[in-house]
Amino acid sequence: MSQAVATHDTHEEHGEHPTCTGIPNKKMFMWAFLASDCMFFGCLIATHMVYRISPPPGSPDLQGILDIEIVSISTFLLLMSSLMMALSVHAIGKNNLKSFRRCILATVGMGMGFLLIQSYEWYHFVHEYDLTLTSSLFGSTFYTLTGTHKIHVIIGIIWLMTYYFYSFSGKMDHKSELDVEVAGLYWHFVDIVWIVIFTVVFLLEFVDM
């Protein structure tokens, strides 16, 4: 063989290969993934809208059961978590681990708060109004759509908590900013999608047309 193989024990800098666009690979990957995720949610929301336009008989009276106040609170929480997320990215970029941990915990905390309120809402729907996954098409599209969104939030929380615990290992510093920023992109996207869901699933029902 004409090659000598050396395993890696040197600490020489491999020099981050500059990318053609200047955008780091991971970040571009996440942007492209989010474009794809837009289509996922787009199709789910479209499905919901199709059955909203032509509701089958026996559909629930939505103005009577949707509780805008409580969903507004959870929406507010999720939006504020985005602010904390942005601050986390900023903190890690400044090598400020203490602040980073606080901001991550706040982000995750608000995300949890959102999940709790939404779960309360689910519980409420099931027990007060007998609205289940199979009771009506509204139930099917509603739980599938909000459930998919919840899974996204849960994945985001697990991801951020991984960074939180990892930050105690001493291996996170300003060089981790890109990683956190990529997680942040995901988190912001999950928030933005919720705004769309909040509008078309909840607010729209109160528009008199």
Partner: peptide, 19 residues
């Protein structure tokens, strides 16, 4: 999530970790 530590920016960190 899988791409979390892929790419080059985390290189220094991950190499230390390898030991």
């Amino acid at each position: 999530m899988p791409m979390q530590n892929e790419g080059s920016s985390a290189k220094v960190i991950t190499e230390e970790r390898e030991s």
